[in-house]
């Protein structure tokens, strides 16, 4: 019965749920923990006028950048542009709508969306443009700004392993926004490096319970591009 969640590939998993103008959440921090194959599926599908909620927007030639480059994204909800020149240029020239969120506010808005909490108050952003037009209230002598939940028509996330029920385990810092976004999609699709048989994930170690996950695919291979490969030299053994 649980096998109903497993789909053969990205195109099959995206079948019948995409429409122009929809809102998509996409996990990842920089290029770590990106749903590479589902993003490629969105590119192939050509669905457009997208509002994309993601901390970044890929990087030169990789990930969500390819959708931006293909003109499929109308609006980004993000926290960081950094070195992504295309993202900065499209925004500064007025060709892309952008809602910049503090990273913690972004994460908490997504968490709140998945938990059915329409709004919450935070210190972050008080006295800055982020708080403009939003209610500010005093609690125990300090000011807090009200932020609202974020939800998506479809959330695409990347995990390390899944079982047929859609329980997910992430690997290292590739976890980032993925477990939060998995809870906030009307439909959540997870792509993983390995789908393991039932019984192979320790229930104590599951990060995302399968209730949040509707569809699962196993990616054929992962590029996992590194933005800044930083290493240290090995000391000479006999030095």
């Amino acid at each position: 019965m649980a096998k109903r969640k497993i789909f053969p590939d990205a195109d099959a998993a995206l079948e019948g749920i995409l429409f122009d103008g929809m809102t998509i959440m996409s996990g990842g921090f920089g290029l770590s923990g990106n749903p590479e194959h589902l993003i490629a599926g969105l590119l192939r599908n050509g669905v457009k006028d997208l509002t994309v909620i993601s901390n970044n927007c890929g990087a030169d030639g990789f990930g969500l950048w390819t959708l931006l480059n293909n003109g499929q994204i109308r609006k980004m909800v993000s926290s960081y542009i950094g070195e992504n020149k295309l993202f900065a240029e499209l925004y500064l020239s007025g060709k892309l709508e952008l809602e910049l969120n503090p990273q913690g506010t972004l994460a908490e808005r997504i968490r709140a969306g998945g938990a059915g909490i329409p709004a919450f108050y935070t210190r972050t952003g008080v006295g800055t443009v982020v708080a403009q037009g939003k209610p500010v209230e005093e609690f125990e002598g300090a000011l807090y700004v009200r932020e609202t939940w974020l939800r998506a028509d479809v959330a695409i996330v990347k995990a390390w392993k899944a079982d047929p029920e859609g329980n997910l385990v992430y690997r290292k810092t590739a976890r980032n926004f993925n477990p939060n976004m998995a809870t906030a999609g009307k439909i959540t699709i997870a792509e993983v490096e390995e789908i393991v048989p039932a019984g192979m994930l320790d229930p104590d170690q599951v990060h995302t319970p399968g209730i949040y996950v509707d569809r699962v695919i196993q990616g054929p291979s992962y590029e996992k591009r590194i933005e800044f490969r930083t290493t240290r030299p090995r000391k000479e053994e006999n030095a």
């Binding site: 921090f29 920089g30 770590s32 290292k172 590194i226 800044f228 490969r229 290493t231």
Partner: peptide, 21 residues
């Protein structure tokens, strides 16, 4: 932890500056 040796680099293990750690 410190930056990795060349043969320890893991794309799933980065810091907030997107450097491998």
């Amino acid at each position: 932890g410190p930056f990795p040796y060349d043969d320890e680099v893991d794309p799933d293990l980065i810091n907030a500056g997107k450097q491998t750690v």
